[in-house]
Design a protein around this nucleic acid. Sequence first.
DNA 1: AGTCCACAGGAAGGGCAGGCGA
DNA 2: TCGCCTGCCCTTCCTGTGGACT
Length: 406
Amino acid sequence: MNEQNIFSQYIQKHSVFRDKRTLSSNFVPERIQHRGEEIQILGSIIAPVLKGFHSNNIFVYGTCGTGKTICTKYVLGQLVEILGTHGRDIKPIYINCKMKKIADTEYRLFAQLLREFGETVPDTGLPTDVLYRKFFEKIDSGKNEVIIVLDEIDALFRKIGDDFLYNLTRINSELKQSHIMIIGITNDLSFREALDLRVKSSLSEEEIIFKPYNAAQLKDILEERASAGFATGSVGDSVLGKCAALAAQEHGDARRALDLLRVAGEMADRLGDGIVEERHVDMAEYKIDMDRIVETVKSQPRQSQAVLHSIIKISQKTALQKQWSDRRMLTGDVFDAYAGICASVGMKPLTQRRISDLIAELDMLGIITAKVVSNGRYGRTREIRLAINDNAAQKVDAILAERFSA
DNA sequence: AGTCCACAGGAAGGGCAGGCGA
DNA sequence: TCGCCTGCCCTTCCTGTGGACT
């Protein structure tokens, strides 16, 4: 091999990792810690399908990173494993409703369900009721028990309402030999309350609530993952403790804890340090937050970017004169600045109504905070502030300035 | 108590791209 | 090819809001 090859150095270098996959939040381990009770309950609700009985629908609640998805996948994995010995026709389907362009509309949801059965469905073009009928015919062509896991079901509900749930449950009353069971996963505890009465009554569901992990539980989880993921002696107890403590501050989010640990390892690797230290966790925390912001901004449509650009511009201008807490602006200010940017780059401006929606979307993404306030006779508007720190704002501004340079 | 402001936000519909079936 | 369907982005129109001001 050519010693000058740019990758030869990488191959020779010692890595802190043994198996990085196990440090991914999507990885389903053989044993899930601190969720024994929830797994038991979930299993006991699903179990009747093994004997040919119908199971109730289930709603799994819990904040981000509390193990809802992983436990559900784990239980279904166990189900599939035992199916081999029982030979029943049970088909679990996992769909993440937050995945844009995958299952974020009723059409796309049914299209995705049909694809799980090996059908080819166009991305658009067919009436939704045709897909509905196709799906119906497909599952009723045999004796099937279909378990549909709808992860982040609240995202789909917010976008298209609860008709899709009603339609899914209604299918059961029409099916002759098959049955559908729905497992909805959500971090919105008020989700059920928002459902229409007729949907609630047709669901006949059970609920499981996942509580956040505490720091000690997170550390247990990290220890087990680290022993499989890192080379022996590469990561110390204090590093695991720090990742656990930081994640515990964020509502006991195990996903965050794993991300911190994995990225800290990547930092150590990149710097050729051989051992993961606490300073790598600090770097990881910064990098994760920065990457999230930059990626979010880059993936926004041009008009949203122009709105954000105008918000940063106003924020920078006021920063010179005011305290941080006073760096707020109103919808009208943002619209004026946005119109100015459009004029300078020759872009057709959208209406204020549309900009109002884009501001709300940026708020949802966590890049800005936009609070509706009333200023008395000076009107009702949104008070807008940047929700990212100065470093991130500068980085985002540099990206946007390049995009909107006249 | 009534007025007024500067929007918020819902509803309806237009225009577009793209796919299907007759 | 045409009519009909979809999702998506957008505009237009409208009503509602809440607190300062008169």
